[in-house]
C-alpha cells in the first residue's frame, strides 16, 4: 500500500493535484473519492480531466444530476456520482463495464463496496479553503 498526502490551499491547487493524478492514470483505473459536501471532489476531477487531456476540462461539472458523465481525452473519463443513489441502485451502475477504454472516478464512493485494486482518495477540510488530499494506492 502506498499513501501520499498533498495539501491544497485553493481550488486551483486541487486542479494541479488532480492533473498529476490524471497524468499517471492508466486505462482500467478506478478512483474512489471520499469527502463531504463542498470538499472539492468535482474540482479534483476537473484536474484529473486536464491530466488526461480532456480539452473542455474546465466544463467538467457535477454529475449529481445525471449520475454518469463521459469526457473524451487521450482515453475516456467516466465521472460517476452516487450522491443521489444508495443500496441496490449503486450496483446497477456497473462501474466495471466502463473500464475497457478509460478510467472511472466515483464521487460519494462510500455508498459502494470496492474491490481490491481501487485507488482511494480522501479529501478532508483542514481550513476554509485548505484541503488535505490523501491518495491510497493498493
Amino acid at each position: 500500500m502506498e499513501r501520499t498526502e498533498c495539501i491544497s490551499r485553493n481550488p486551483s491547487d486541487t486542479w494541479d493535484i488532480g492533473e498529476d493524478i490524471g497524468r499517471h492514470a492508466k486505462p482500467g483505473d478506478v478512483y474512489a473519492l471520499y469527502g463531504e459536501l463542498g470538499a472539492g471532489k468535482t474540482q479534483l476531477v476537473k484536474g484529473i480531466a486536464r491530466g488526461i487531456g480532456v480539452k473542455d476540462w474546465l466544463y467538467v461539472v457535477s454529475p449529481s444530476f445525471t449520475i454518469v458523465n463521459i469526457y473524451e481525452g487521450v482515453y475516456n473519463l467516466f465521472h460517476v456520482d452516487f450522491y443521489r443513489i444508495e443500496g441496490d441502485e449503486v450496483d446497477s451502475i456497473h462501474v466495471e463495464e466502463f473500464l475497457d477504454n478509460g478510467i472511472v472516478v466515483v464521487e460519494w464512493a462510500d455508498r459502494a463496496k470496492w474491490w481490491n485494486g481501487v485507488i482511494k482518495i480522501y479529501i478532508e477540510n483542514i481550513g476554509e479553503e485548505e484541503r488535505s488530499i490523501v491518495i491510497v494506492k493498493p
Partner: peptide, 8 residues
C-alpha cells in the same frame, strides 16, 4: 455552469 447547477 462550470460545476453545480444553481438549483442543484
Amino acid at each position: 455552469t462550470r460545476d453545480d447547477a444553481a438549483g442543484e
